[in-house]
Every structure is written in structure tokens, then in C-alpha cells.
Amino acid sequence: MARMKFICDAERCIECNGCVTACKAENDVPWGVNRRRVVTLGDGQPGEKSISVACMHCSDAPCMAVCPVDCFYRTEEGVVLHDKDVCIGCGYCSYACPFGAPQFPSNGTFGMRGKMDKCTFCAGGPEENGSAAEIEKYGRNRLAEGKLPACAEMCSTKALLGGDGDVIADILRTRVVQRGKGSEVWGWGTAYGKPKS
């Protein structure tokens, strides 16, 4: 069974935010809720690099472990989803998530956050696939349509890869080898030129 994963190739990501708005548009995510965001380290300095992050769909997911109402579940493809009808908006998943993936439509006092929203790997939620209710609450279920996440499909430089973990790891490996600057060939690759692809 395919295990869905994201990889963001920092050598390629140009911080164009295409992935971010692709997600917004495909899933009609409201202002203030950001299922995906792009973070740049070393901004404005040589060595600057960006990566795009969303939910990592962790195998031992902290969010799932702390949820007081146990509304998370995992699909056979390893996608971590949750049920908004059950979610109580307590925010615990966001405290636990190492990556800041869970989002809330509001940040009000009295702990009023609304229901948690996060990246679904474009796999919708517990409602019937492609139903109005599913789209309304979770956005599109692209996996059920045989497509991959909108953010990865539209990434401007193909930095963001999303899909079967094995396949995307292969793509990245090929790239690293092509760059001739994989861990195996540090230094030498640049000195001698690249292996012919």
C-alpha cells in the first residue's frame, strides 16, 4: 500500500507561495487558516533556503495521541485526517504538533477557536467522498479522484513532491545524483562535472 508523504526540496523551493494559494483555492480555505506555509531560513543572506510545510501525516502522530475526543484517524495510505463533527476545538493537537499544522478559524478569547482545520493531503474527511458536506468541511478529496495534492501538483519548481513515499523519494534521489552533489560525491562532483544523465 502506498504511504503518502511530502518532501520539499529546499534546493528548488523559491518561496513563491504557489503551493499555499493552490491549497487555498482548491480547498477554499478561509483567511487566517493556513494549511500550508513557506518558511525561509537565513532570509536575505547567502545560503538562504526555503521550505514549504504542512501536515506531515506522521506515523506516530502527536496530534492524534492528545486529542481528547479521539477524532483523528488514519487512512490506509497513511494520511492523518480528523472528523470536524467530533472536534471540540480544544487546540491540544496544535500544542502537540511539532510542525504547527493544525489551524483554527479564530483565535478568540475564552478559548473559542472553532473546529480545527489542517492539511488533509487533499483527501477530504470522513464524509462521503466528493460530497458537498465533505467539500464544505474539508475541501476537495483529490486522492479519491485519483489525483495528488493540489499544492504539490502546482508547485512552480517541482520542489514540493507529494505522493507515494517510495516514488517521491526516488525522484529526489535522482535529482540529488544529477546535481552530482549528493552525500556520496561532495566536492568531487563540482570539481569533475556531473555524471551524464
Binding site: A10, R37, T40, L41, G47, K49, W186, G187, G189
Partner: peptide
């Protein structure tokens, strides 16, 4: 010194809790 070795970057990712990166949001 080691083209392609982004270890300092990934260390930065790990340490972004202390030294946050920049994002538009």
C-alpha cells in the same frame, strides 16, 4: 566546502524554534 551538504540548513530547521525563519504569513 561541501556542495550539496545542507546540514547547517537542516540544523536551522531543527532550531527554528529558537531562531525562527521568515514567512509571509
Amino acid at each position: 566546502s561541501q556542495p550539496g551538504n545542507n546540514a547547517p540548513f537542516w540544523r536551522g530547521v531543527r532550531q527554528s524554534g529558537e531562531q525562527a525563519g521568515i514567512t509571509n504569513l
